[in-house]
Design a protein around this nucleic acid. Structure first.
Lengths: 246, 246
DNA sequence: GGGGAGAGATGCCGC
DNA sequence: GCGGCATTTCTCCCC
C-alpha cells in the first residue's frame, strides 16, 4: 500500500501502472456529453479503476453522481498559485472536468481479481425452469423452444397448449407491468402474422402484476401465471451455511 | 483523516459516526435477496457510505459487483483463529456476506456535501423544447399539453396538426427503438379509445432510430421526426469556459 | 407507498 | 459494432 509522497506524482504513477486510485476531495464538477451537468462544491470520493473507469461518489446514494466509462483518458494539472488541481477526463465527445479544491487523502493499489459473478435467479433461469417444468405454466403445456429470436424481439418460452394452440410465454422475474404486456403483445402479433394464425395465446409469467397491467392483459385476452424465479442458495442459508464452503 | 489503529475499531467507529468508509481487501462474497450470487476470492474495494449504502467494486467496470441500498445494517466480526473478518450486511430479506480474507488498507472520513446535480438535456427538457417550439415537430403543429397522464401511461407532448387531427408525440433523447414505438402505439390507442376517434397520429421524436423501429413505425402509419435534445452548456465549453465560473 | 417511465442508464448476448 | 433486452437495475415523479 503506497501513501502519498507528492499528490500529482502518486496519481500519475497509479494511472500509468493500471493501479486503482481512490481520492478523498472537496471538488466542483462539470460534465458535457450525452447530456450536461454541473455539481457545486462538496466532499466526494473519486475512484479511478485500472480500466480507466472513473466514478465520483457523494456521501449518500447507490449511484455515482458523475462517471466516465472504461477507456477514458485522464489528465491531472495543478492550478497555478493555488493548492487546487483540475482533473480532465475525456472520451470521444464526453468530457468530465473535476475542479479539486482540496485533497483530503489518496490511496492507490494494484488490485488482482479474476473472479466473475455467479448469479442465480435471473429471467433466463426462470425461462429455463418453465421450459423444463411446463406444468408450472399450465397442465398440458408443451414447450417448443426457449429464447426464440424473431425480428421484433425474442420470445422467452414458446410452445402449445393441450388443445394444440400456440402459446407465447413472457417471463418477468419481478412485478409484471404495462411494458411487459406490450412486449408480450408484440410477440403474439408477430407469431400470428408470420404463421398466418388467427389465434395465438399470450401468457405473462411473473411473481406479481400491477393492476393496470392485469387489466391490459384481460383487454387483450392474455393470461397471467403466478411463478417465482428459482433460487438455489436460499435453502443453504436457512440451514446455517458457511461462506467458506462455496 | 484517520488511519487505522485497530481495523475492527476503526470500522465500527466510522459506522457509528456516519462517516464514509473505504476498505481495500481480498474477499469472497455471497448475496441472497432478489436473486442470489457468489463471487470467488479476489481484490476489491469496499465502500460504505454515511447512509449505509455498501458498494463492492472490482478493479474493472462501472457497476458495483455487489451492493446493498441505503439503510442497510452492517455487522463486522473477526473469524476466530485467523486474520479474517466477516462483514454481514442485511436489509429486510436481502443479505450480503463478505468474507474478508485480508485487509490491505482502510480509510474513513466524514464527508460534507449538500450539493445536488443540475442536469440539462433530459427527455423532460426535450419535451419542454418541443412544447415551446412546435415547428420542430412540423409546420402547423399546435401543442395542447405536456406530460399528460393517462391510465395506460403518460404522454410526452399532445396536440393537433394543421388539419385539426390529434397528435401524440413520444420523445426519446437517444436512439428510438422497438420499445419506444410500442409505447407510442399504446398511447395512440388509448387516446383513440377514450375519445372515440378513428384517427390519431403518432410521432416519434428522437435524434436517431433503429431500422426495425422505423419499419414498425411505418407498419403502424406513425412518423419519425429528427430532433436533438437541447444542450445549453456546450457553447460555453467551446468558448474556453472556466470551471470556477459556474 | 405503489405505479409508471426515464437514465449521461450499464451489461450481456446474438447477429 | 449494432440491436434488442434484462437489470439484485436505480432514480424520480406523481398519484
Amino acid at each position: 500500500m503506497q501513501k502519498h509522497t507528492t499528490f500529482l506524482e502518486e496519481c500519475k504513477l497509479a494511472l500509468q501502472n493500471d493501479a486503482t486510485l481512490v481520492l478523498w476531495v472537496r471538488c466542483e464538477i462539470m460534465y458535457s456529453g450525452r447530456a450536461e451537468s454541473h455539481l457545486a462544491s462538496g466532499d466526494r470520493l473519486i475512484i479511478i479503476k485500472s480500466d480507466k473507469t472513473i466514478l465520483v461518489h457523494q456521501p449518500k446514494g447507490s449511484s455515482p453522481i458523475n462517471y466516465m466509462k472504461a477507456g477514458c483518458e485522464h489528465t491531472l494539472e495543478p492550478v497555478e498559485g493555488t493548492d487546487a488541481f483540475i482533473l480532465h477526463s475525456r472520451q470521444g465527445k464526453e468530457y468530465l472536468d473535476v475542479f479539486i479544491e482540496q485533497v483530503y487523502d489518496l490511496s492507490t493499489k494494484k488490485l488482482e481479481d479474476h473472479a466473475t459473478l455467479q448469479l442465480v435467479g435471473s429471467e433466463r433461469d426462470m425461462s429455463d425452469m418453465l421450459y423444463h417444468n411446463p406444468e408450472l405454466i399450465e397442465k398440458g403445456f408443451t414447450p417448443l423452444s426457449r429464447e426464440e429470436h424473431t425480428k421484433y424481439g425474442f420470445i422467452d418460452v414458446f410452445g402449445y397448449d393441450k388443445k394444440g394452440i400456440l402459446v407465447v410465454v413472457e417471463c418477468k422475474r419481478y412485478m409484471g407491468d404495462l411494458a411487459a404486456v406490450t412486449q408480450l403483445r408484440r410477440y403474439v402479433e408477430k407469431i400470428k402474422a408470420s404463421k398466418g394464425l388467427a389465434t395465438v395465446r399470450g401468457i405473462l409469467a411473473c411473481p406479481a402484476i400491477t393492476p393496470n397491467a392485469k387489466k391490459m392483459l384481460e383487454d387483450w385476452k392474455f393470461s397471467y401465471v403466478h411463478v417465482h424465479p428459482p433460487k438455489y442458495l436460499e435453502k443453504h442459508r436457512k440451514s446455517q451455511m458457511k461462506l467458506g464452503e462455496y
